[in-house]
């Protein structure tokens, strides 16, 4: 399979404006088959806008968003190969879960019982009416509705919101199975620990713009500036703090009294050399976690606005 053939979703310079309000701007990224991509961003960052434009639910202002090289708004049949779970999980309230899923199965040309195995795994009551369901149960309907299509592209918009931990675990087990069979999965979520645990790649969006697109591994071991290794450092000195002013890589470090902490992106031997024989009550150097990286981006946004 060539690189081009492996691309399931391709978004290029996508722009969507609602009147004068910006939904997203110049968004570009790909999702390949056999890959889980975490789509991360705060509320209102533009994640759902990008997903809706990709599915042809809203009309793009400019740019392209294609599934298997086709615009879903023009070639609706391409959605036959897409399973979608919406963030709102709103369905026809006067229908029973079973009838709704049967309708989905019929439209996708699946057997009427394809949903049963997924519903059983998530402990979903099929006989309840949609308007009797809690948010968590509507999320389960949304997940079953998308996975039962057994599509090779899954687009899941905040699927785990409102789910209890056991169901979340089962959901990610199903995602792993889908990945194993080669599906391309775009997973929009707020839960960064999940992205770190289950996603191969993370695309971070803020204020409608993509600010990072990298493998989760390189995000947690690298920095925003390419080629530098970043570590999360916390040192508490006992008596006095050495002078670190000429040590490079201290840009994201803060000094507060006897405490030095932050993301160190320089040469570790320089830092250790400067510490020398100074006595410390606490010393820790660890890999960054995605949570702190994403919050760095969010904070940068806040600082930028100030």
């Amino acid at each position: 399979m060539t690189n081009a053939e492996n691309i399931a979703i391709q978004i290029k310079e996508l722009k969507k404006y609602y009147g004068t309000f910006k939904g997203c701007e110049d968004v570009s990224f790909d999702v390949n088959f056999g890959e889980v991509v975490g789509f991360v961003g705060p509320n209102g960052a533009g994640k759902s806008t990008v997903i809706k434009a990709l599915l042809g639910l809203i009309i793009k202002t400019s740019g392209t968003a294609t599934i298997l090289g086709e615009d879903a708004n023009i070639r609706a049949d391409i959605r036959q190969r897409v399973g979608y779970a919406s963030s709102d999980s709103i369905f026809y309230k006067n229908m029973r879960v079973k009838n709704l899923l049967e309708f989905t199965a019929a439209v996708y040309g699946k057997g009427a019982d394809t949903y049963a195995k997924y519903a059983k795994r998530l402990d979903l009551d099929l006989n309840k009416r949609i308007d009797q369901l809690s948010l968590g149960n509507r999320k389960k309907v949304s997940i079953v509705n998308s996975l039962m299509t057994e599509a090779d592209i899954l687009i899941l918009d905040e699927p785990t919101n409102g789910l209890d931990p056991l169901v979340q675990k089962e959901f990610y087990a199903m995602i792993s199975e889908s990945k194993k069979r080669g599906a391309a999965i775009l997973l929009s979520t707020h839960i960064l620990a999940d992205v770190q645990s289950y996603c191969d790649r993370a695309v971070i969006i803020k204020d409608g713009l993509i600010v990072a697109d990298s493998t989760v591994q390189s995000l947690v071991s690298g920095s925003k500036e390419s080629g530098k290794v970043v570590k999360d450092v916390l040192i508490v000195f006992e008596n006095s703090m050495p002078d670190f002013s000429d040590v490079s890589g201290m840009e994201n470090m803060t000094m507060d009294g006897l405490t030095l902490k932050g993301h160190f992106s320089g040469n570790m031997s320089d830092l250790l050399g400067r510490i020398g024989s100074a006595s410390m009550s606490q010393f820790s150097v660890s890999d960054l976690n995605l949570d702190s990286i994403v919050h760095d981006y969010y904070d940068a946004e806040k600082i930028g606005k100030q």
């Binding site: 599915l55 639910l57 036959q80 369905f91 026809y92 439209v107």
Partner: peptide, 17 residues
Amino acid sequence: REQYGEYLYSMPLSRQT
């Protein structure tokens, strides 16, 4: 208006259909 559109129009049915 009642937000069922996201479910219906995300399926393999064209707007025309």
